[in-house]
Amino acid sequence: MLTLRDYDNSDIEALLALANNKLVSRFLVYTFPYPYTRADAEWWISAGVKAEGDVTKVIEYNGQFAGSVGIARKTGWRDHLAEIGYWLGEPYWGNGIATQAVQQMTDYAFSDLKLQKLYALILAPNTVSMRVVEKCEYELEGVLKREVFKDGQYYDVHRFAKVLKI
């Protein structure tokens, strides 16, 4: 069973154990460091998940901390949309958990937050993540060439989006 819930200080150990993995961080944003330290986990739980306008949840699978999903709301003339992001610890890969979490967060963003559009930015080699959003009916809007420089190389970014159906 999958649930999305708020972070708690008791999540530090599980967060640290799953996040300190190069295979987890390799396609994530630069603010998700590797190595992932206790200080990173403590900061994330005390401040990082509390960014104004953002909603970040623990993905809990069968009662265990499995990863995280969140949305970062935009402001001004783009305040009707948000970027969605997610990650899972390696032991939880390949079970459809990310797809369930993205779908739950998407439904919440459209129904409760009244957002009109969500988008995901996915590095080109991360085809598994592309498949996750496709299963949730996100569509490819475009490819941004050499958009990201990470770990000594440039990556194309695939932008997927889902618009609220009216």
Rank of each mutant, 00 (worst) to 15 (best):
K57E: 04
K57D: 04
E60W: 12
Y61N: 03
Q64Y: 14
A66I: 06
G67Q: 05
V69P: 07
G70I: 01
A72H: 13
A72W: 04
R73D: 04
K74E: 14
G76R: 15
D79H: 12
D79S: 12
D79T: 06
H80S: 08
L81C: 09
A82F: 00
I84S: 02
Y86M: 03
Y86E: 03
L88F: 01
P91A: 02
W93A: 00
G94Q: 11
G94K: 13
G96E: 06
I97C: 03
I97Q: 06
A98Q: 06
T99A: 14
V102D: 02
Q103G: 14
Q104D: 13
Q104I: 08
M105W: 04
T106F: 01
D107N: 14
A109T: 11
F110S: 00
S111H: 12
S111N: 11
S111C: 06
L113M: 14
L118C: 00
Y119W: 12
Y119D: 06
A120I: 01
A120S: 12
A120R: 00
L121R: 15
I122K: 04
I122P: 08
L123R: 09
A124K: 10
P125R: 07
P125W: 04
P125A: 08
N126Y: 07
V128D: 04
R131T: 11
R131L: 03
R131Y: 02
V132A: 08
V132P: 12
V132T: 15
V133P: 10
V133A: 04
V133D: 09
E134R: 13
E137Q: 14
E137H: 12
E139N: 09
L140P: 00
L140N: 04
L140M: 13
E141I: 08
G142K: 03
G142W: 08
G142P: 01
V143C: 08
L144V: 07
K145P: 01
R146M: 04
E147D: 15
E147Q: 14
E147K: 13
V148H: 06
F149K: 15
K150G: 05
D151Y: 12
G152T: 09
G152V: 11
